[in-house]
Design a protein around this nucleic acid. Structure first.
Length: 490
RNA sequence: GGGACCGUAGCUCAGUGGCAGAGCAGGCGCCUUUUAAGCGCUGGGUCGAGGGUUCGAAUCCCUCCGGUCCCA
């Protein structure tokens, strides 16, 4: 047959001609495949009805073996002419791999020892019109083309279920464990605007959209931060939000334009309190997902149990690169020192961004020395316009980032609550923007007004959920953790 | 943004200037405990798209589209 879809359409037509609805409403499952296998002894002689996708079919003249797979797993079925009747047996030729069927019968064990349903009746539940990825060596379906896997994730889940499904289960458990932990500590889950008149809370370019009735542009949020802190100002002392955020930037193994962020804020806390919160949160989530805090990420053993190592950014960079950036207070001095040690220096980047590059050099890539889990803390002020200055310093803020396995997991600080300082920081950002940095943050008058009403001393954290799932599922690409990652339009 | 590599049947892949191939999947036939079932026969291609070089292009060149990896 030239076209398999045509062949399947013909079979569909034959079913209809025989008065059989190929897409009936009713199904009547009594057990899942896993329940049938697990309850084999108790189910002896009991008529059970299972459903599932037809994954294999081996016809043998007057009998046929097949495997069906439901959400719980796979089970073999045996279709014997003498058991199902002449007419039903002839109808087997109208079955195709991929069809979703229902079988009723009793359990038995074959000569080769496989628990199997001896079918008495079967019915079509949904006719499949397109072929599945084919069996390869070992009898398993094969689908390797990443483009097909991401664009048509359903095929990926059908063909690569054992590898792919656990990742999404890890994702679900991660989210549930986060909420469990935060709820238990009195954090209130809230939802704040995704469509924002101004974007803020992070250093990134936004997606712009348009509201027709208001006839104005709105921005997809790049972070929920400024709204969550408004709620803290309103007296909700512990808040968190888990939701999608959008950053108009490149796509690579650790970046997707839309991704999931968890941000939490706690009044009357500072960044040291938040460090303890974060390490306990991550240990709890790891424990819930894996049953232990000991994990392996890309071959590196990590223990997520508190306390995590704490190293100042300055010390970490000095130890692993030999460059003490505090010794080079001017941008050009630092740039010269970096060039002398073989680092590429982007002439457009300011001093803070150069320090950021040094940080990446010790964390990411094959040369990375810092495996973690670790908190790097005390960051340059000009990179952190929403963080509070460290007492006794001029250019350092109370900020930290957790890292594990080379992954940047989040960002936290003692929140800047001085409205006058905040205004000055925004104005500095505006100057950086005027110098061509289109990721610099924009001044948000309404947010400053909230600070003027009064934001208590507050510690906050924002963490990437997708990256945490990468860590916990031992995946090296964020695309494996997102059901439908962003791809170019084909 | 730069570089390298990849795109051939439903899937996984060979083929690198001379008739478009294999395994599995599909179709037909045989087979009543098989399980990568087996045996026999068999259909299936815009070689990502467009342009160029050549007597001749899946193969060489250019542009574009999509993907992967590395770098920024």
């Amino acid at each position: 047959m030239a076209d398999e879809r045509e062949a399947r359409l013909e079979k569909l037509g034959e079913l209809r001609a025989q008065g059989i609805d190929p897409y009936p409403i009713e199904s009547a499952r009594t057990h899942t495949a896993a329940e049938a296998l697990a309850g084999y002894d108790a189910l002896q002689g009991v008529r059970i009805t299972l459903v599932g996708r037809l994954m294999q079919l081996r016809e043998m003249g007057k009998a046929a073996f097949a495997h069906i797979e439901d959400g719980s797993g796979r089970i073999q079925i045996y279709l014997k002419r003498d058991a199902i009747g002449e007419e039903a047996f002839r109808r087997i030729r109208l079955l195709d791999l991929g069809d979703i069927i229902q079988v009723t019968g009793t359990l038995f064990t074959t000569r080769t020892g496989e628990k199997t349903v001896q079918v008495e009746e079967y019915a079509m539940l949904a006719k499949s019109l397109r072929p599945l990825p084919a069996k390869g060596a070992g009898g398993d379906l094969k689908l390797f083309d990443p483009e097909v896997r991401y664009r048509r994730r359903y095929l990926d889940l059908i063909a690569n279920r054992d590898e792919v499904l656990p990742i999404f289960l890890t994702r679900a458990r991660t989210l549930a464990a986060m909420r469990e932990f935060l709820n238990a500590r009195g954090f209130i889950e809230v939802e704040t605007p995704i469509l924002q008149p101004l974007y803020g809370g992070a250093t990134a370019r936004p997606f712009v959209t348009h509201h027709n009735t208001l006839d104005r542009d709105l921005y997809m949020r790049i972070a929920p931060e400024l709204y969550l802190k408004r709620l803290i100002a309103g007296g909700i002392e512990r808040v968190y939000e888990i939701g999608r955020i959008f950053r108009n930037e490149g796509i690579d193994r650790s970046h997707n334009p839309e991704f999931t962020m968890m941000e939490c804020y706690q009044a009357y806390a500072d960044y040291r309190d938040i460090m303890r919160l974060v390490e306990e949160l991550y240990a709890h989530v790891t424990e819930r997902v894996h049953g232990t805090t000991h994990i392996t990420y890309q071959g590196v053993a990590l223990d997520m149990a508190p306390p995590w190592q704490r190293v100042t950014l300055r010390e970490a960079i000095a130890e692993h690169t030999g460059i003490d950036y505090e010794a080079y207070p001017e941008r050009e001095q630092l740039a010269e020192t970096m060039r002398a040690r073989g680092y590429q220096v982007d002439p457009k980047l300011g001093r803070g961004r150069l320090i950021d590059d040094l940080k990446d050099a010790i964390i990411k890539g094959p040369e990375a020395r810092v495996k973690g889990p670790v908190f790097l803390y005390d960051y340059p002020l000009d990179l952190s316009p929403l963080a509070k200055r460290k007492p006794g310093t001029r250019e350092t803020v109370e900020r930290f980032q957790p890292y594990a396995g080379g992954l940047e997991l989040g960002n936290a600080f003692s929140e800047l609550n001085d409205p006058l300082d905040q205004r000055a920081r925004f104005e500095d950002q505006a100057r950086q923007r005027a110098h061509g940095d289109d990721e610099a943050q924009v001044l948000d008058e309404d947010y400053i007004e909230a600070l003027e009403v009064g934001l208590p001393p507050t510690g906050g954290f924002g963490g990437g959920v997708d990256r945490l799932v990468m860590l916990l599922a031992d995946q090296d690409s964020i695309r494996e953790t997102i059901a439908f990652p962003t791809l170019r339009e084909k």
